[in-house]
Design a protein around this nucleic acid. Sequence first.
DNA 1: GTTCCTGCAAAAGATTTGCAGTGAC
DNA 2: GTCACTGCAAATCTTTTGCAGGAAC
Lengths: 145, 145
Amino acid sequence: MTGRSDWSSHVHAVLAGAGFRRGGARERVIDLLAGESCALSAVEIEDALRAKGRPTGRASIYRVLELLGEHDLVERVEVGDGVARFEPAHPGGEHHHHLVCDRCGRLVAFDDPGLERAIGRLSDRLGMRVDHHEVVLRGSCETCG
Amino acid sequence: MTGRSDWSSHVHAVLAGAGFRRGGARERVIDLLAGESCALSAVEIEDALRAKGRPTGRASIYRVLELLGEHDLVERVEVGDGVARFEPAHPGGEHHHHLVCDRCGRLVAFDDPGLERAIGRLSDRLGMRVDHHEVVLRGSCETCG
DNA sequence: GTTCCTGCAAAAGATTTGCAGTGAC
DNA sequence: GTCACTGCAAATCTTTTGCAGGAAC
């Protein structure tokens, strides 16, 4: 299992290797994401950073997320409400998917080896290169039951 | 298998049953979607209708899509480019998923019983009510291979 | 000192809403 | 005749871009 500070070090290593400098906004976004296990939108990141006394321009947040995305350091999650969310992408490849509660809007993460196997078999059957996949379930969470 | 005109009749029946009147824009959008097997965005619908000599206000298109969505008559598909796409939702429940080509952006539809079974088992295991699911694969299509 | 990074403000693109006119029932 | 449906225009919301100042190296 890949931990939080591992991800942060990995990110810094990849970006340094690609010749990028460090900067305040970048560090703040990476720090925040490293401490979150589930996906956050750009606005949620902005609000969280402001609440922590580390206000950061929204444009910078989008730029950091774009950069991280280009280097496969974050995973982009869209659940159908018109907002993109981002979460740390771990180099080992382990990942989870999401259930969206239709009543309260909450995002619940889960993983399922059987689902991963089914997608692997499907990729083989399709005969196309499949780099990435995303599964979104829609229903009601435990609280809203 | 549920055919195209079946879907159209189903839509009209559901909407009439819910007390909605008919109107030009609604008919035009329903007609168009009934003849499409894969997902279209609001702008693509607008362009297609204009090309057919049946121009329709974009706001009306969004309103029709919203109405159809509320009645589970269309399925909303988002593949990560910031645009919502819509396709007919068949009452029988049969549906397909999508592969997005990262090179040309093309949307390729597929279905896979094994994947559906895996999702069914997963839903049972989670112990939550799962009404709906969506799978998006990302890779390269046959043409871009 | 050069070049990248940041933040503000403006722009772009998708979607929603307000409102007056038209059409369905 | 009433009330829903439509289309335009304006507003809203998310995300992107331009640019000037500041920071990393």
